[in-house]
Write a protein that binds this DNA or RNA. Structure first.
Lengths: 185, 185
DNA sequence: CAGAAACCTGGCCGATCGGTCAGTACGGTG
DNA sequence: CACCGTACTGACCGATCGGCCAGGTTTCTG
């Protein structure tokens, strides 16, 4: 792994655990065994470092949204499955966006995250459904994302195999979303 | 409303929206139309200000847990109803704890929040249930809490009457938790 | 009225933040 | 050899942070 990637991995772990604002470049440098100036040599700014960490996950989310738009309609289970896989793939980035997206919305890359999440909600026409439907989707996707984010903090899983988590999440989402918008069959 | 309470309300709104670390005492002072030194006259420190904001909600949560412990067992719907009411009552505090609890766990009042959340999860024996059960509870409670926290940010509700939100959340939680631990009937 | 108590302020402190810059070490490459 | 791009560093910068303090003002109270 290149020094560049190593720094990114260290920063991701720290950002996810302690938060972006609370993680100083000095701390990242210490963990990597180099000087703060060296970190800023690899990444021109702290925001840029955050962007390089978060953007790959957002790119995948963007692709998922685009593919749904192009299809016009999508089978419900297909979307749920792909969404869960996306969350699991970018497991470490999820807490970052979930827990600190609101706080860091003035940072471009986090604003992008907010916009993408809004598009996800619009995709399901949350704005036009009944209150019950809106909240059903909110609880479902928010709950899955937040559970992944808070998992190790509350000791909810940790040692559970990914496959098991995946199938359980799929079942839960299926239960929650079955009586949903019929446009997405 | 006393000047003291006014400051608390201003700080709560800012902490919830922008985050604790990102909200400076200077900004709170500006919004209240006074000097930073005056804010520190009313609250001896920034952490103390946070504690006075969060503790009332944690006190209520503590009381809920104690009453369940004393009862030995609790009807499922009773707990769910009381929990939802608690979240709705302290609606503004929820995003603070949810989004920034992990980041600020070294702050005593936030650590208290973490411990209480852990006790909630233990109450439902999340550690001994199946993976599916664990995640079901995680998604349910995390989802409800997070949905309230993210509500206005993503424009999911905002103008929906509280009563409607309340009944919808109760229905969703009921659906999710019905096939749950039989010890809490 | 006098004095205590509550309230508020500007100025200052040390610490830390993200970021800049000149300069050093070094492995290729002609 | 000279030259160059990459990697890295210590010293420094301005800004901002939470917090402290001496002292001024306002308000309550005997």
């Amino acid at each position: 792994m290149s020094r560049h990637d190593e720094l990114r991995a260290i920063a991701l772990a720290e950002f996810a655990m302690a938060g972006f604002a609370a993680t100083s470049l000095q701390r990242i440098a210490d963990l990597a065994g180099m000087s703060k100036a060296s970190v800023l040599y690899h990444f021109e700014s702290k925001e840029r470092l955050l962007a390089e960490i978060v953007n790959p996950a957002l790119d995948d989310l963007d692709m998922l949204i685009v593919s749904i738009d192009q299809a016009g309609a999508l089978r419900h289970s297909d979307f749920v499955e792909r969404f869960v896989d996306l969350l699991l793939t970018h497991r470490q980035v999820v807490p970052l966006v979930i827990n600190q997206g609101a706080t860091l919305d003035d940072v471009p890359v986090m604003h992008r995250a907010t916009l993408l999440m809004r598009r996800i909600s619009e995709l399901f026409r949350l704005a036009s459904g009944s209150t019950l439907e809106k909240l059903r989707f909110g609880v479902a996707f928010g709950g899955v994302a937040y559970t992944l984010a808070a998992a190790e903090r509350l000791g909810l899983n940790g040692e559970i195999p990914i496959d098991e988590v995946r199938s359980a999440l799929l079942e839960i989402l299926h239960d929650l979303l079955v009586p949903a918008d019929p446009r997405i069959a």
